[in-house]
Design a binder for these strands. Sequence first.
DNA 1: GGTAGGAGTTGAACGTGTTCAACTCCCTTG
DNA 2: CAAGGGAGTTGAACACGTTCAACTCCTACC
Lengths: 234, 234
Amino acid sequence: MSDPNAPTESKSARTRSAIIDAALRLFREKGYDDTTMRAIAAEAGVSVGNAYYYFDSKERLIQGFYDRAQVDHAIAARSVLDSETDLARRIIGVTDAWLQTMEPYRQFAGKFFKNAAEPTSPLSPFSPESSPARLAAIELWREVLEGSDTRIPKKLRADLPELIWLYFMGIVLFWVYDPTPDSSATRKVSARTAPLVVRAIGLTRLPVVGGMLDDIVALIGEVRQVFPTTEETT
Amino acid sequence: MSDPNAPTESKSARTRSAIIDAALRLFREKGYDDTTMRAIAAEAGVSVGNAYYYFDSKERLIQGFYDRAQVDHAIAARSVLDSETDLARRIIGVTDAWLQTMEPYRQFAGKFFKNAAEPTSPLSPFSPESSPARLAAIELWREVLEGSDTRIPKKLRADLPELIWLYFMGIVLFWVYDPTPDSSATRKVSARTAPLVVRAIGLTRLPVVGGMLDDIVALIGEVRQVFPTTEETT
DNA sequence: GGTAGGAGTTGAACGTGTTCAACTCCCTTG
DNA sequence: CAAGGGAGTTGAACACGTTCAACTCCTACC
């Protein structure tokens, strides 16, 4: 239960990841719907029932996809993070890195989003189960901000990474609906909106806008209270 | 095909709406997942196969829900639209009307949204199949704007109803995730953000903000090109 | 009245995700 | 070594959404 290096665990861990491997391979080749649990089990060399011993449902296999995507994205984003200092270009670059990472899974992205969209689903990006992946993602966007030469107004410093992540979720949402075969529409929207985001951050310093911002920040704080987000460590 | 008062049609139309009635009743009572097509068919007094003659799939039954909800919402919003002139209060009132209309279906709202979220699904609010309902909804928000005493800047006049509808979709999204039993969190967010929306419209007149707005409006125009939205009448 | 043909209707059958009672291992304890 | 027991594993069985060949009914035309 708390002994991660026990050799006992590695066997089951290997079975576990064999199932994810098989699942993702088949998802990529044939799409989500056309991949049956029987096929996944066969490909992984286990029985159907055994696959269900490790994963509650077919949807749960997508969580494995999530986690890997998150890691791959962080890797793909590295070069931009280390070389670029202009904020807008950092945002665009990191978004592009995501698009490249996701390309192979494009065709079943819709399905994966569909599952993520159901609030009661553990796959929802806002669910407790997704907390680690979400927090890691927000952390990535914090680095995007902090490594740039744009100065962030004090008021915003705490919440901005999460807000940018939300903006990015919007881009992802757009991508899911994007009918262009090479995601060019998404790339265009990203390239056009990122400078606007940066400008909006600047506008925050105007008194009128700043007043509105105070309201928004306060509202965000209150809303956070409503959701059970496992973040309070008291 | 083009003879709506032919008595021939009314029989099948009656069967059709008997199925929707049965479906919505059961959805409300037992939730979406716990309602089987067999149960719906039995409740409607038809065979399973027959239900599939009228509706491609179980999901399609939700479209019927959509359409009715849209009509009910328009009715429920009437009194606010006819009595209130303050824009923020109009927005809040119309949103409240929606929340009241939807209350009975709250428990399966998540499911219905899940289905709507898949881009390839005809249930997506952006799909051609949903076009009529969507356009009707946008029309409702146009009335919200036009019946108010707030003057809308020229630049925005054409696109604002759709933008407000998008804002409202955001509220709906929040509602779907809202864990409070009486939707109080959603009501609060609505009450707090509506005045901000109104203020933001005002800010549009500032040169700096106006410049950004031009970019956004131009981008919206380009993005519209990408989607096959059946709206061009050439 | 008879008949062709389409619209409407049926329920058995199929494929799928999921469950479960039973089984096999293998480690621990005496 | 024996007994116990828990983790891991199995595939048949179940319930559901969906399909389809066959059927019935009704209308239109001669």
